[in-house]
């Protein structure tokens, strides 16, 4: 997707997120706009970096890392950015995405229905695996360090 198209899509999503944020969080329209625009700029910068920087690193890594650095306490402007993005609810930002996802899923509904139960079973296994795996390592290390 060209940069111009990316910008247009980001603006559309920002516009959609304005609605979900105003309805889903205490923030009003005027309070939500600066934070959303900051997020859109971070997203755009990350996408551009992934496109032009070497290393084949996915843009999601650039976007998250940029967001981290810009809000790291003490970085110039971090207080300003933090102040505004705090008004944007994480869960509210998910609503437009899953609305698009719902419409998109429509075309693969059969595949979803076929494998749905398997994926739910797998989800339970994945959650258990992560939890027990982490607990085993944590137990070993805490014991080694003498903390338990």
């Amino acid at each position: 997707m060209s940069i111009k198209d990316t910008i247009i899509v980001l603006l559309i999503v920002t516009f959609m997120s304005l609605f979900s944020n105003v309805l889903g969080t205490p923030a009003g329209i005027v309070e939500s706009i600066p934070g959303l625009l900051i997020l859109a700029l971070i997203a755009l910068a990350g996408i551009v970096m992934a496109k032009y920087l070497p290393g084949n690193i996915p843009s999601v890594a650039y976007v998250v890392t940029l967001g981290c650095i810009l809000t790291y306490p003490g970085v110039p402007g971090s207080e300003f950015i933090n102040f505004w993005v705090q008004k944007i609810g994480f869960v509210s930002l998910c609503t437009p995405i899953l609305a698009y996802a719902g419409v998109a899923i429509g075309k693969d509904l059969d595949a979803f229905a076929k494998n749905g139960w398997r994926i739910v079973v797998l989800a339970c296994v994945v959650f258990t695996g992560t939890y027990i795996g982490s607990a085993i390592i944590a137990q070993a290390i805490l014991k080694y360090l003498g903390q338990i």
């Binding site: 997120s17 990350g46 996408i47 843009s59 967001g67 933090n82 993005v85 994480f90 698009y100």
Partner: peptide, 26 residues
């Protein structure tokens, strides 16, 4: 509509990821 929606999905996620980064930063 279904086709266009799935083409847009990748970029719609980036706004959320920007928020995610700004949650972790502080």
């Amino acid at each position: 509509e279904m086709h266009d929606a799935s083409a847009l999905l990748g970029i719609t996620l980036m706004l959320l990821m920007a928020r995610y980064g700004t949650l972790v930063g502080p």
